[in-house]
Design a protein around this nucleic acid. Structure first.
Length: 615
RNA sequence: GCCCUGAUAGUGUAGUGGAUAUCACGUAGGAUUGCGGAUCCUAUUACCCGGGUUCAAGUCCCGGUCAGGGCACCA
């Protein structure tokens, strides 16, 4: 609705300029004035026209006003110096806004464009940590915004199963054992049993295993242990610990790198089914551990795409062949793309000298496929990928397909420095969520004595997870972020106050006797002058769709976070300044409360945050 | 060294070249015999430095300073 207002203003200004027989500028600026006394919308076109017409902006504004025809839903148009100021006719506008809102408020017109959105894509060599979720939360929120804005979106998680890091995990499976002491598994306690002994017995007396090398048997034991005895949500943590230990081994004995490379060569060769099984199990276990984490955070992926696919189906090879045709490849010891002509000093190596493929080449094949499948391709990436993406863009240009739009985010670091799975320095998302929900519980217990444990747990989950998502989503992605527990989990203001506004609205509706979804707004508003806080609230509600549109177009989700706070604030002001239940305007106000409730709920949903009905 | 990003009240942040710079936390006051005080109101304090472009610069350009990241046959 708000967008229509703006559009009407622009068009009426254009009409006026046409009437005056002046040239219409390409861009008619419409903005919100700094002060309510200056109206609801304003334009500074006069400045733009001043140069060409050789007249003062003030004069121009006067001239425009003389021929100006007031658009619908406005009751006053004035000039304040060089500005044109527009005042909304709230009696009319309110009818329009309130009548247009139903449970699906915010769903924009279907756009018939398919977007492939890749996000998260963390290496499956450990649990997700707070650095990764900036990616997940930006990506998932954007997915929600784009879908509401009418796009068809497919979200993908690109699984790196062929990299050196995974080979290191596999090396660990071959040569190390999981540290049983750190495996906090309830099942293990239940059976009170040495899991390796157990695995050994399962594998005993199998003649087919006798033929296997010792390390294969060890790997199978490890996998058995992982699959059967480790709780699902702990699998990624176990892999992470193993990966950390392999890194330590490697530091002590650098020559191990040859063994690890050999694993990669064999896996890529595709002629050792057992090794392939072990790689896949390693990756799968880790993904199985990440799944409950993402689910609890309300992050959704439509598909998981394994990078090995592009080696197996020959598309990596095809990409390399096609790039050779571009004329920019060179070869000395190794095949690479020379991009100096395009201002990139760093060459893009396409294949290792041992013949195995590299991440960037496989990524190229992946992007090629995405470009063909979607009208728009969006990647959410850490800013450390900037150079790589510049190279990919050029290469995709050689391949004649469109490049992805990339949303870069700067890193989240700990006060003591950067996080690293390799060094085992990180705060896992599981840990963060547990802590957040615990703090929320404590907070609820302080405020509510009428709830039982189950109810408290349910609400705490919504508040705790909401706090995390909001903390990350509110910040513009190019801002570097230092993680601090107290800031991330603060319930004062921030997300909880938005949820509170929703709970408050729900409570009102529950108490109200005069709720009627089919009231005769026309009639009511013809006999009632809206109060300021009501007008403000209606205006804020009406902005919801334009916020979505803008957020979708600019691919920036932090605007939604900002808006949700404005919305809650407008509702709270209304609530505080006017009585609802028992007032003469109860029917109208309850109706307005219901529309507010819907808008807050749908707005939080865009951020993957639940709106509790009571808290 | 080269490249990319950021720099806005005590802190964290928003800001499409346009009027009095957003929001939150913090601090100091205040409100409520009303629908839930995770609320509302008031005060408080800011555009890193130096040039330039423009009628108009937090916003654009150039040069610094500080912070983070990148410059692998890693992902």
């Amino acid at each position: 609705m708000y967008r229509k207002l703006k559009l009407d203003v622009v068009n009426s200004i254009k009409d006026a300029i046409n009437t005056l027989d002046w040239e219409v500028p390409d861009n008619i600026p419409v903005e919100e004035p700094p002060n309510a006394k200056m109206g609801d919308l304003a334009s500074s076109v006069a400045f733009e026209l001043a140069g060409k017409l050789k007249k003062s902006p003030v004069e121009i504004t006067q001239d425009i006003l003389k021929v100006f025809i007031k658009p619908e839903n406005f009751d006053q148009v004035e000039s304040k110096g060089p500005y044109l100021n527009f005042f909304i006719d709230y009696q009319k506008f309110s009818k329009l806004v309130l009548n247009s809102i139903n449970e699906g408020y915010g769903n924009l017109k279907i756009k018939n464009r398919k977007i492939i959105l890749e996000h998260t894509s963390a290496n499956p060599n450990g649990p997700l940590h707070i650095g990764h979720i900036r990616n997940s939360i930006i990506g998932d929120s954007l997915n929600r915004v784009l879908m509401r804005a009418g796009y068809t979106v497919e979200t993908q998680y690109y699984v790196n199963d062929m990299g050196r890091q995974i080979a290191m995990v596999v090396w660990g499976l071959f040569n190390l054992k999981f540290d049983e002491k750190t495996a906090e598994t309830s099942y293990k306690e239940q059976i009170n049993y040495d899991p390796y002994l157990w695995a050994e017995q399962i594998l005993k007396n199998r003649p087919e295993l006798d033929a296997l090398e010792e390390k294969y048997v060890n790997a199978l034991k490890n996998i058995l242990y992982l699959q059967v005895l480790v709780d699902e949500n702990q699998k990624d943590h176990q892999i992470g610990k193993l990966y950390f230990r392999v890194n330590q081994e490697l530091k002590a004995r650098p020559e191990l790198i040859d063994e690890i490379s050999q694993l990669l060569i064999t896996y890529e060769g595709g002629e050792d089914p057992l090794l392939e099984f072990i790689f896949k199990e390693a990756v799968n276990s880790c993904l199985e551990g990440m799944e409950p984490t993402l689910k609890r955070l309300h992050v959704n992926h439509d598909s998981f795409i394994w990078e090995s696919k592009y080696v197996r189906d020959g598309s990596v090879e095809k990409v390399i062949e096609k790039l050779k045709d571009s004329g920019y490849t060179k070869e000395n010891e190794v095949l690479y793309l020379d991009l100096k002509d395009f201002g990139i000093e760093k060459e893009l190596v396409l294949m290792r000298s041992d013949g195995t493929s590299l991440y960037s080449t496989r990524d190229l094949a992946y992007h090629l496929e995405k470009s063909r499948k979607g009208d728009v391709v969006i990647d959410i990436l850490g800013s450390d990928h900037k150079l790589a993406i510049d190279q990919i863009r050029l290469a995709l240009g050689f391949l004649d397909v469109k490049s992805p739009e990339v949303i870069f985010y700067e890193f989240i670091t700990l006060p003591e420095g950067s996080m690293s799975t390799r060094r085992g320095v990180f705060i896992s998302v599981d840990q963060l969520m547990t802590e957040a929900v615990e703090r929320a519980k404590a907070e609820i217990k302080k405020r509510r004595t009428d709830l039982d444990g189950t109810e408290i747990a349910e609400i705490a989950e919504k508040i705790g997870i909401g706090a995390i998502r909001y903390y990350i989503a509110r910040l513009s992605p190019e801002k570097h972020m230092v993680f601090k527990w107290d800031e991330a989990l603060s319930f004062e203001r921030g997300c909880a106050s938005i949820q509170y506004a929703h709970a408050r609205a729900c409570k009102l509706l529950q108490k109200a006797e005069k709720f009627d979804a089919t009231i005769d707004l026309e009639n009511i508003l013809d006999h009632y002058q809206l109060e300021n806080s009501e007008m403000e609230l209606i205006k804020t509600i009406s902005q919801f769709t334009s916020v979505i549109e803008e957020s979708a177009q600019t691919r920036k989700v932090h605007k939604i976070a900002q808006y949700s706070l404005d919305l809650a604030s407008a509702f709270n002001k209304f609530y505080k300044s006017l009585p609802v239940i028992g007032s003469e305007e109860e029917i109208l106000r309850v109706f307005l409360v219901d529309k507010s409730r819907i808008t807050i709920k749908n707005c939080l949903d865009l951020l993957g945050i639940e709106a509790p009905e009571s808290m």
